[in-house]
Protein backbone atom coordinates (compact mmCIF):
# COMPACT_ATOMS: atom_id res chain seq x y z
CA UNK A 1 0.00 0.00 0.00
CA UNK A 2 1.03 3.60 -0.40
CA UNK A 3 2.48 3.79 3.07
CA UNK A 4 4.02 6.91 4.41
CA UNK A 5 7.82 6.51 4.29
CA UNK A 6 10.60 6.16 5.00
CA UNK A 7 10.86 2.83 3.22
CA UNK A 8 14.53 2.36 3.93
CA UNK A 9 15.74 4.70 1.18
CA UNK A 10 14.54 2.46 -1.60
CA UNK A 11 11.95 3.43 -4.20
CA UNK A 12 10.75 -0.18 -4.18
CA UNK A 13 8.29 -1.66 -3.75
CA UNK A 14 6.30 0.97 -5.55
CA UNK A 15 2.62 1.45 -4.80
CA UNK A 16 1.72 -0.29 -8.06
CA UNK A 17 3.80 -3.31 -7.10
CA UNK A 18 1.80 -3.45 -3.89
CA UNK A 19 -1.49 -3.49 -5.74
CA UNK A 20 -2.40 0.20 -5.63
CA UNK A 21 -3.35 1.66 -8.98
CA UNK A 22 -4.73 4.97 -10.17
CA UNK A 23 -8.41 5.65 -9.43
CA UNK A 24 -11.20 5.04 -11.92
CA UNK A 25 -13.00 8.09 -13.30
CA UNK A 26 -14.93 10.00 -10.68
CA UNK A 27 -13.06 8.35 -7.81
CA UNK A 28 -9.95 9.10 -5.79
CA UNK A 29 -7.39 7.11 -3.81
CA UNK A 30 -6.51 7.65 -0.16
CA UNK A 31 -3.53 5.46 0.69
CA UNK A 32 -4.79 2.14 -0.72
CA UNK A 33 -8.55 2.80 -0.57
CA UNK A 34 -10.70 4.00 -3.43
CA UNK A 35 -13.06 6.71 -2.21
CA UNK A 36 -15.41 9.36 -3.58
CA UNK A 37 -13.80 12.54 -4.78
CA UNK A 38 -15.48 14.63 -2.10
CA UNK A 39 -14.26 12.34 0.69
CA UNK A 40 -10.76 12.62 -0.70
CA UNK A 41 -10.98 16.40 -0.98
CA UNK A 42 -12.05 16.64 2.68
CA UNK A 43 -9.18 14.44 3.81
CA UNK A 44 -6.71 16.38 1.68
CA UNK A 45 -7.91 19.67 3.13
CA UNK A 46 -7.66 18.24 6.64
CA UNK A 47 -4.14 16.97 6.10
CA UNK A 48 -3.00 20.27 4.61
CA UNK A 49 -4.61 22.31 7.38
CA UNK A 50 -3.31 20.22 10.27
CA UNK A 51 0.17 19.03 9.24
CA UNK A 52 3.30 21.09 9.78
CA UNK A 53 4.68 23.25 6.98
CA UNK A 54 2.04 22.29 4.45
CA UNK A 55 3.26 23.28 1.01
CA UNK A 56 1.94 23.41 -2.52
CA UNK A 57 4.38 22.50 -5.31
CA UNK A 58 3.04 24.07 -8.53
CA UNK A 59 4.61 22.65 -11.69
CA UNK A 60 5.23 24.09 -15.17
CA UNK A 61 1.70 23.38 -16.38
CA UNK A 62 0.33 26.03 -14.02
CA UNK A 63 3.35 28.28 -13.48
CA UNK A 64 3.51 29.54 -17.05
CA UNK A 65 0.92 31.53 -18.90
CA UNK A 66 0.54 29.42 -22.03
CA UNK A 67 -3.22 28.76 -22.01
CA UNK A 68 -6.47 30.05 -20.50
CA UNK A 69 -6.72 26.94 -18.34
CA UNK A 70 -3.20 27.54 -16.96
CA UNK A 71 -4.05 31.17 -16.17
CA UNK A 72 -7.31 30.20 -14.43
CA UNK A 73 -5.58 27.48 -12.43
CA UNK A 74 -2.82 29.87 -11.35
CA UNK A 75 -5.34 32.21 -9.75
CA UNK A 76 -7.13 29.30 -8.08
CA UNK A 77 -3.92 27.79 -6.72
CA UNK A 78 -2.98 31.10 -5.18
CA UNK A 79 -6.41 31.20 -3.52
CA UNK A 80 -6.00 27.58 -2.45
CA UNK A 81 -2.70 28.39 -0.76
CA UNK A 82 -4.35 31.20 1.18
CA UNK A 83 -7.26 29.00 2.31
CA UNK A 84 -4.93 26.17 3.35
CA UNK A 85 -2.36 28.53 4.95
CA UNK A 86 0.16 26.73 2.77
CA UNK A 87 3.49 27.87 1.44
CA UNK A 88 4.23 27.58 -2.29
CA UNK A 89 7.51 26.27 -3.64
CA UNK A 90 7.73 26.06 -7.45
CA UNK A 91 8.88 23.10 -9.50
CA UNK A 92 9.55 25.49 -12.38
CA UNK A 93 11.25 23.04 -14.72
CA UNK A 94 12.81 19.63 -14.73
CA UNK A 95 16.42 20.46 -15.49
CA UNK A 96 18.89 18.96 -13.06
CA UNK A 97 20.43 21.74 -11.00
CA UNK A 98 24.20 21.97 -10.96
CA UNK A 99 25.87 21.89 -8.50
CA UNK A 100 22.78 21.84 -6.24
CA UNK A 101 19.34 23.31 -5.74
CA UNK A 102 18.42 25.97 -3.23
CA UNK A 103 16.11 23.74 -1.20
CA UNK A 104 14.64 26.72 0.61
CA UNK A 105 12.90 28.13 -2.45
CA UNK A 106 12.71 25.45 -5.12
CA UNK A 107 11.98 21.80 -5.69
CA UNK A 108 13.42 19.62 -8.42
CA UNK A 109 11.93 16.30 -9.54
CA UNK A 110 15.36 14.71 -9.62
CA UNK A 111 15.78 15.06 -5.85
CA UNK A 112 12.51 16.34 -4.39
CA UNK A 113 13.30 14.88 -0.98
CA UNK A 114 15.95 17.60 -0.42
CA UNK A 115 13.32 20.35 -0.39
CA UNK A 116 11.03 18.32 1.84
CA UNK A 117 13.80 17.54 4.32
CA UNK A 118 15.13 21.08 4.34
CA UNK A 119 11.76 22.70 4.97
CA UNK A 120 10.46 19.88 7.17
CA UNK A 121 7.33 19.59 5.07
CA UNK A 122 4.77 17.12 6.41
CA UNK A 123 2.07 17.55 3.76
CA UNK A 124 2.40 18.64 0.15
CA UNK A 125 0.24 19.04 -2.93
CA UNK A 126 1.79 18.39 -6.34
CA UNK A 127 -0.18 20.22 -9.02
CA UNK A 128 0.65 21.06 -12.62
CA UNK A 129 3.64 18.71 -12.70
CA UNK A 130 3.87 16.63 -15.87
CA UNK A 131 2.91 13.04 -15.04
CA UNK A 132 6.22 11.36 -15.89
CA UNK A 133 8.10 13.66 -13.53
CA UNK A 134 5.37 13.53 -10.87
CA UNK A 135 5.75 9.74 -10.89
CA UNK A 136 9.49 9.96 -10.33
CA UNK A 137 9.23 12.66 -7.66
CA UNK A 138 6.40 10.99 -5.74
CA UNK A 139 8.23 7.67 -5.58
CA UNK A 140 11.30 9.35 -4.12
CA UNK A 141 9.32 11.39 -1.62
CA UNK A 142 7.32 8.33 -0.59
CA UNK A 143 10.37 6.27 0.22
CA UNK A 144 12.64 8.90 1.68
CA UNK A 145 10.39 11.16 3.73
CA UNK A 146 7.37 11.05 6.00
CA UNK A 147 5.55 13.71 3.98
CA UNK A 148 1.87 13.14 3.19
CA UNK A 149 1.87 13.62 -0.57
CA UNK A 150 -1.18 14.69 -2.53
CA UNK A 151 -1.39 14.53 -6.32
CA UNK A 152 -3.98 16.79 -7.92
CA UNK A 153 -3.70 15.52 -11.44
CA UNK A 154 -5.39 16.77 -14.61
CA UNK A 155 -5.11 13.28 -16.08
CA UNK A 156 -5.46 9.92 -14.32
CA UNK A 157 -3.77 10.40 -10.94
CA UNK A 158 -0.66 8.95 -9.26
CA UNK A 159 -0.70 5.83 -7.14
CA UNK A 160 2.53 6.71 -5.34
CA UNK A 161 0.91 9.72 -3.68
CA UNK A 162 -0.81 9.16 -0.33
CA UNK A 163 -3.87 10.88 -1.80
CA UNK A 164 -4.64 11.33 -5.44
CA UNK A 165 -7.55 12.86 -7.26
CA UNK A 166 -7.80 12.82 -11.01
CA UNK A 167 -9.24 15.00 -13.82
CA UNK A 168 -8.65 18.15 -11.81
CA UNK A 169 -9.50 21.09 -14.00
CA UNK A 170 -10.21 24.67 -12.99
CA UNK A 171 -13.83 23.93 -12.02
CA UNK A 172 -12.69 21.04 -9.78
CA UNK A 173 -10.20 23.30 -8.05
CA UNK A 174 -13.04 25.71 -7.28
CA UNK A 175 -14.93 22.82 -5.72
CA UNK A 176 -11.87 21.85 -3.68
CA UNK A 177 -11.42 25.40 -2.41
CA UNK A 178 -15.08 25.44 -1.32
CA UNK A 179 -14.62 22.17 0.58
CA UNK A 180 -11.34 23.36 2.09
CA UNK A 181 -13.10 26.44 3.45
CA UNK A 182 -15.76 24.21 5.06
CA UNK A 183 -13.14 21.92 6.60
CA UNK A 184 -11.23 24.93 7.87
CA UNK A 185 -14.40 26.23 9.55
CA UNK A 186 -15.13 22.79 11.03
CA UNK A 187 -11.61 22.62 12.46
CA UNK A 188 -12.03 26.17 13.78
CA UNK A 189 -8.76 27.29 12.21
Amino acid sequence: MANQGPAYYSPYPTALYEGVSTPVEGKAILLDKEVDEETAMREIAKQMLTKENATIFPGPQVLYSYSDEARKKAALIKEMAEVLNAKMIPMYDYRPKYPKIDAEIEINPNHPNLTIWHNDIKAAIFIGVHCHYANVALKMVRCETDCYTIAMCALSGHEDAMATIRDQHASDLEQFIKIAREVKAELKL
Partner: peptide, 12 residues
Protein backbone atom coordinates in the same frame (compact mmCIF):
# COMPACT_ATOMS: atom_id res chain seq x y z
CA UNK B 1 8.45 31.17 -20.70
CA UNK B 2 5.89 33.71 -19.44
CA UNK B 3 5.30 33.36 -15.74
CA UNK B 4 1.75 33.63 -14.41
CA UNK B 5 1.61 36.79 -12.25
CA UNK B 6 0.37 34.80 -9.24
CA UNK B 7 3.69 32.97 -9.04
CA UNK B 8 6.15 35.70 -9.95
CA UNK B 9 7.08 36.31 -6.31
CA UNK B 10 8.05 32.69 -5.68
CA UNK B 11 10.07 32.10 -8.86
CA UNK B 12 13.88 32.12 -8.67
Amino acid sequence: YKINPEFRDIMP
